[in-house]
Computed example of a mutant assay.
Amino acid sequence: MWDASKTWAPGVSNRIYHQGDKGGYVWELQRRLRFIGYYAGKINGSFDKQTDRAVRDFQYRFGLKVDGLAGARTKLKLWRATRHMAAPQQRAKAPAPAITQAKPMKQVPRSNAGLSQQDIQIISQAVHAEARGETYVGQVAVAAVILNRLQSEKFPNSPSAIIYEPLAFEAVADGQINMQPNQQARKAVYDALNGWDPSDGATYYFNPVTATSDWIWGRPQIKQIGKHVFTR
C-alpha cells in the first residue's frame, strides 16, 4: 500500500510534480488541496488542468512562486496547512485550524473550472468595469480574453496578477475596477468559463476610438464586437 507519509513528511521527497504527472503523490496532492478548499475535481491521481489551476491558486494565496509546480516549498506549505487531515481510511473529525497565510477558500463549485470565488469576483469586476456598456456578447468576450491570458505562458499565472499587471487594463488605472459587478457581468464570466469565447482566442482588445498606442494597433486583429476590437 502506498504510504503518503513517505512523500509528504518535510524534507523527504525532492521530486517536483507538474501537469501531466500521474500517480499516488498526485492523488494525495488533490486530496490535500480539496481538504482546504482549493480543488473540487475528481481525486484521480492525474495532474490535469484543474489540478494545475488549484496548485497555482494555492501558491498565489500562500505567498509562493506561482508556477504550478509542486516542488519542495509548495509541498511543505501544503503539508503544514493540512497536517491535521485524517488518513484516507479514517473518518475525519472536525479539523483543527490550518496554519495559513491567507484564509482558505470555501469549496469551489465544479462550474468554476478550478477557479476560486475570489478569482470569479475579480474577473467579474474587470468585466463590469471594462465592458458594462457593451452587449452581453461583448462582456463574455472580455471575460474570455482574461481566461485566454490565464492559459498563455506570456501572461501571469492568476486572474488577479493578470488584471493588476501594469498598464494591462484601463479600469485598474482609473479605479473603476473597485466597482461592484452586476449579475450580468458575473453571468458573462461563467459563460466564458463554460467554454464560450466570442473573441475567438483573443488575448488583447482595445477601443479604436480612444486607443493611442501604436503597439496595440499593430496586433493581428480578429474581430470587432461593439466598441472593442479583439486581437492576438
Rank of each mutant, 00 (worst) to 15 (best):
W2A: 08
D3G: 09
A4S: 13
G11N: 06
S13F: 12
S13I: 05
R15P: 00
Y17I: 06
G23D: 05
G23H: 05
G24L: 06
W27Y: 14
Q30C: 06
Q30R: 04
I36E: 13
Y38R: 07
Y38V: 05
A40K: 08
G41S: 01
F47Q: 05
K49Q: 11
K49A: 10
T51Q: 02
A54V: 05
A54K: 04
A54P: 06
V55K: 03
R56E: 05
R56D: 00
F58E: 11
F58T: 10
Y60M: 10
R61T: 09
R61P: 07
F62Q: 12
G63S: 05
L64N: 02
V66Y: 03
A70M: 14
G71M: 13
T74A: 07
L76G: 11
L76M: 15
R83D: 10
R83T: 12
P88K: 07
P95C: 09
T100L: 13
T100G: 05
A102W: 15
A102F: 15
V108W: 05
P109K: 07
R110C: 00
R110G: 09
A113E: 15
G114R: 04
D119M: 06
I120W: 03
S124Q: 06
Q125G: 04
A126Q: 13
A126F: 09
H128L: 03
H128N: 13
A129K: 00
T135E: 09
V137N: 06
V137Q: 15
L147T: 01
N148A: 03
N148M: 02
R149Y: 02
K154W: 01
K154E: 08
F155I: 01
P159L: 03
Y164I: 00
E165K: 12
A168W: 01
A171M: 00
G175T: 00
Q176V: 02
N178T: 06
M179A: 10
D191C: 04
S199P: 00
S199W: 03
G201S: 10
A202F: 09
N207P: 11
N207V: 09
V209P: 00
T212E: 09
S213P: 01
D214I: 03
W215P: 00
K223D: 10
Q224A: 09
I225A: 06
K227R: 14
F230M: 02
F230Y: 12
T231R: 00
